[in-house]
Simulated scan of single mutants.
Amino acid sequence: MFINRLPRMHFLTLGDFIWDILPLDPSFGATVTRFPAVTTLKLANGRFHSFSDFRRVVCSFAQLIHLYVENVEWRAIAPAYGATFVDPRLGLLWFKSRSEAAISALVDWLVGSRSTETLSDIQIWEQYSSDLPEVQRLMRAVGPRLEHFQVSLQFWTRDKRLDLSANTSLKTLHVRDIDSSSCQHLPFLLEHLSPGSLKDLSLHLLIPTLDDLGVLRVLWRDVANILARDAFALLPTVTIWLVKVPPAAAISIADLAGELRSWTPLDAERTYLRVFPLLALDG
């Protein structure tokens, strides 16, 4: 009923859908192709019968550039027999899912699609250790075309972590979930990075207690040594986001900020300390 009323609709969200009992009717794809102006699609909090159904919906939008996938699952991974798709040329992929099998199916599709020629922005909000080899495969397939990347350090191990040396054109890098247990992997990430094009490095810190602060103080020495190298000399901005802080009774925000600034080897003019907008600061 919206087809003739919204001919210029460019952003569409499909949310809270339960399409996992039966395969999606093929007529659905024929319907959504009649929205030719859609360039941004968000699929949120839903279940497909198969990955093939997910792909059918995505590929129905010929002009799609931005794809957001949030908490979407599919029961079967194997594509439907005889299914044919014309994949879009994605520029941005935003991905968050609680399903361990989701990233593998997504990467299998993307690596074999035209999007590896156009993807310049990849935002991974959640992944498990078992997902990291798949993410690595996508990063290598995209290579120097990638300009913006966001990833979480949560669940990294010494055997499963990311090497970004093939992504030589990165302009922004956002590293999330840096805490006393995951910070040990941050030096590896920075060492396996080509910072020549980097304009903004954002680090999201979680420091719930003074004990965590003490651990981070020691681990940060390796981070500071890497940022002090000549390769990072032209990096204009390092933004440190405080996502979680100790109680105000343990240390004031001013004292915490002063300590964090003392850890950073870059000039004060290039280092910004920010408090995450949703953080409630008691006292």
Rank of each mutant, 00 (worst) to 15 (best):
L110H: 00
V111N: 04
V111R: 07
G112T: 05
G112I: 05
S113K: 01
T116V: 15
T116Q: 01
T118D: 11
T118L: 10
T118I: 11
T118S: 13
D121G: 09
I122A: 07
I122L: 09
Q123P: 06
Q123V: 13
Q123E: 15
I124S: 01
I124R: 00
I124E: 02
W125R: 14
W125H: 11
W125T: 11
E126Y: 10
E126F: 12
Q127G: 12
Y128K: 12
S129V: 08
S130C: 08
D131V: 02
D131R: 02
D131Q: 02
D131S: 02
L132F: 05
L132V: 12
P133C: 05
P133D: 07
P133Y: 01
E134L: 13
V135F: 12
R137N: 11
R137M: 08
L138H: 01
L138E: 05
M139R: 03
M139Q: 02
R140Q: 11
R140W: 08
A141M: 03
A141H: 04
A141C: 00
V142G: 04
P144M: 06
P144A: 05
L146C: 04
L146H: 00
E147Y: 09
E147M: 09
H148A: 06
F149Q: 01
Q150N: 13
V151F: 07
V151P: 03
